[in-house]
């Protein structure tokens, strides 16, 4: 056994339309662990890659609901139970006074969940990714588009996948090691 493992195969494309076509062909061919890397968002690419909707929205919803519950619990406990103070004739726990804090805590926890949920789902932060081993991948932030097929894909086969990516117009097709 060598100490390096195949991570996947990467192919370079010259334009947004080329990567869009290539992504569609790769998923139509039966590959499932396909991803595209582009310098800017390409409309419809997630559909071509057959990527489902992100679960982030549901996480944010849970974060928001947690914020509402925490805020209500906190104010009910502090104002209504633990340390009751009557201020200007208002009920110690009055729903009117709790709305701003409830709203703020909902926004805070929903926002934090959105940011850190995104990091979590993207498995960030990490210092390095095998894809950077590809020799022209640095151009992904300027003028090149890349399609990757992971070795974990059930249909993956070094020689065949490489030929496939070349057949759909990929340049600099290369295996990257983990």
């Amino acid at each position: 056994m060598t100490n390096t493992q195949k991570w996947g195969i990467i192919a370079e494309f010259a334009s947004a339309s080329a990567i869009y076509q290539a992504a569609g062909k790769a998923t139509a061919h039966g590959y499932t662990r396909v991803d595209a890397h582009t310098p800017f968002p390409v409309h419809g690419l997630d559909k071509a890659l057959k990527q489902g909707p992100s679960p982030l929205g549901w996480l944010v919803l849970c974060g928001g609901i947690t914020g509402i519950c925490l805020a209500q619990l906190m104010m009910w406990w502090m104002n209504g139970v633990d340390y009751v103070i009557w201020v200007s004739g208002k009920e110690p726990y009055a729903w009117e006074t709790t709305i701003p804090i409830t709203f703020e805590l909902m926004v805070l926890l929903a926002g934090i969940t959105a940011v850190f949920g995104m990091f979590g789902l993207n498995k960030l932060p990490r210092l390095h990714h095998p894809i950077f081993n590809h020799k022209t991948f640095w151009r992904v932030t300027t003028d090149r588009f890349f399609l990757s097929i992971e070795a974990a894909d059930p249909k993956f086969d070094s020689a065949q996948t490489m030929r496939f990516l070349e057949s759909i117009g990929g340049k600099n097709v290369a295996v990257v090691e983990d």
Binding site: S88, G89, E96, T97
Partner: peptide, 9 residues
């Protein structure tokens, strides 16, 4: 509007 009026009473 409601909360300010309710608070000031």
């Amino acid at each position: 509007q409601y909360m300010l009026i309710w608070y000031a009473n």
